[in-house]
Simulated assay, not measured.
Amino acid sequence: MKIARNIVLVPLIMLFVSCQAKVKDKPLTENQLTEKTILSAEALQKYDTAYFASGCFWCVEAVFESVKGVKEVVSGYSGGKEQNPTYEQVAYGRTGHAEAVEVFYDSKIISFEELVQVFFGSHDPTTYNRQGPDRGAQYRSIAFFKNNSEEKAIRNYIEALEKEMVYDAPIITQVVAFEKFWKAEEYHQDFERNNPNQSYVRAVSVPRLNRFKANFKSFLKEDSH
């Protein structure tokens, strides 16, 4: 099994900047939106889906959007039992959900196993209920699986990472059967792309994306280099 040796560990920087500050952000205006090809729900149905949680979904969405074969990434909530969760509820730990992403991908270009490498290579899976400056169970590390094959792929990769002693601490990522994904409010979608000067984006999200790009160049789309 190929092991991604250049693991991106998110430093604990600028603790005064956190993902929870997002509740104060206002919905985007039409002039703030950047151009992006939007695929219809019908068009997306032909692609496979994968689900991950690894901290602020702004960061995670941006990472997966840069990966070849990924057609769309949606920010949302998963891992809990509550119906129709809102950002205010999830961000302040009032549900069992974590901030998560739904990844639509072309399996002819990139495999689920490779997406698992992207997941582990773009965050620190050894920190309990924490990612960078963000703390709380809503920012925990979760790799969701929809079938036995996906579960095996995740567990095999974790085993390989541990065998190679890639991390100095135990991997505590939850490996969870996927149940339901709830799409986040519209202003959270493509937030990093549409708000490059927002304080959290500049201090945490963009640096995290750039570290991933530097270490996983072979995984990137042509326009993401």
Rank of each mutant, 00 (worst) to 15 (best):
residue 97 H to Q: 08
residue 21 A to H: 14
residue 96 G to D: 07
residue 175 V to D: 06
residue 51 Y to T: 00
residue 2 K to H: 13
residue 78 S to P: 08
residue 8 V to G: 06
residue 103 V to K: 06
residue 213 K to I: 07
residue 82 E to P: 02
residue 108 K to W: 00
residue 192 E to C: 13
residue 147 N to C: 02
residue 52 F to M: 02
residue 95 T to K: 04
residue 145 F to K: 02
residue 81 K to Y: 00
residue 218 S to E: 15
residue 74 V to C: 09
residue 166 V to Y: 08
residue 77 Y to D: 03
residue 60 V to H: 00
residue 2 K to A: 09
residue 59 C to I: 04
residue 205 S to Q: 09
residue 54 S to Q: 13
residue 167 Y to A: 01
residue 198 Q to Y: 03
residue 85 P to E: 01
residue 204 V to Y: 04
residue 185 E to C: 12
residue 179 E to S: 14
residue 158 I to C: 11
residue 171 I to F: 03
residue 60 V to D: 04
residue 119 F to G: 02
residue 201 V to I: 14
residue 199 S to P: 15
residue 169 A to Y: 09
residue 148 N to C: 03
residue 215 N to K: 14
residue 199 S to F: 12
residue 205 S to H: 07
residue 152 K to G: 01
residue 192 E to T: 12
residue 2 K to V: 13
residue 177 A to T: 09
residue 184 A to F: 02
residue 2 K to E: 14
residue 124 D to R: 00
residue 222 E to G: 02
residue 163 K to G: 13
residue 101 V to H: 08
residue 180 K to Q: 14
residue 4 A to V: 13
residue 164 E to W: 09
residue 158 I to Y: 06
residue 108 K to D: 14
residue 66 S to I: 08
residue 217 K to E: 10
residue 26 K to T: 05
residue 16 F to C: 08
residue 191 F to P: 04
residue 74 V to H: 04
residue 176 V to T: 15
residue 24 K to M: 13
residue 144 F to T: 03
residue 64 F to Y: 14
residue 125 P to Y: 11
residue 68 K to F: 10
residue 94 R to N: 03
residue 183 K to G: 09
residue 181 F to H: 07
residue 76 G to T: 00
residue 104 F to H: 15
residue 201 V to F: 04
residue 213 K to L: 01
